[in-house]
């Protein structure tokens, strides 16, 4: 299993064409076709700790995260955030952290379940990305990193899938 996990929303044909094939370094998780959306039941916190109870492949993602040093979100930028397919996977993965609160930078955030979290790297692609959307994406990445206990994060923007995927090579 690679050191870097890439959660991407590309169609299979694009993924095959553009994503790295080095399976020693990279693990790939396809967010499309979409997994079911989070039901808001919190059972990943109070019944099956660390694992979503909805029985599809979205339930595996939190555990897969623990095996990697870096998590790359390769996502279409939607309103300055992650695409619905990627977001569906992430919403199902909050079992990666604990329900309990801790104080961080004067704010409440979640306590980590595991002893370390992967670094978060956001690679967004989209047409006519606005400055406002970029600003929102940076704030979102910072907030996600805090809540998932990730100590490092970075955000970059590209105007097409090939350009965004090229940064991985």
């Amino acid at each position: 299993m690679g050191r870097t996990l890439i959660l991407h929303d590309l169609r299979q044909s694009d993924a095959e064409q553009f994503l790295p094939r080095d399976s020693v370094k990279y693990s790939l998780f396809a967010a499309a076709p979409p997994v079911r959306h989070c039901a808001g039941c919190f059972l990943c916190w109070v019944k099956t700790p660390g694992r979503c109870v909805i029985p599809d492949r979205g339930a595996d993602f939190a555990a897969i995260m623990t095996k990697h040093d870096e998590l790359i979100f390769l996502s279409r930028l939607v309103f300055g955030g992650l695409s619905p397919d990627i977001k569906a996977v992430l919403d199902r993965s909050i079992g990666f952290v604990l329900p309990f609160f801790r104080k961080l930078n004067g704010e409440t955030h979640h306590v980590r379940r595991y002893d370390k979290s992967p670094a978060f790297r956001y690679i967004f692609y989209g047409v006519d990305i606005t400055d406002k959307e970029k600003e929102t994406a940076k704030k979102l990445a910072a907030a996600n990193a805090l809540n998932f206990g990730s100590e490092r994060f970075s955000v970059s923007f590209f105007s097409s899938i090939p350009e965004s995927a090229e940064t991985l090579l």
Partner: peptide
């Protein structure tokens, strides 16, 4: 509800 600092995925999909 706020989900992972953003919009729940099913609502985000609708907006998209």
């Amino acid at each position: 509800p706020l989900y992972v600092d953003g919009i729940p995925s099913h609502l985000l999909r609708l907006l998209d």
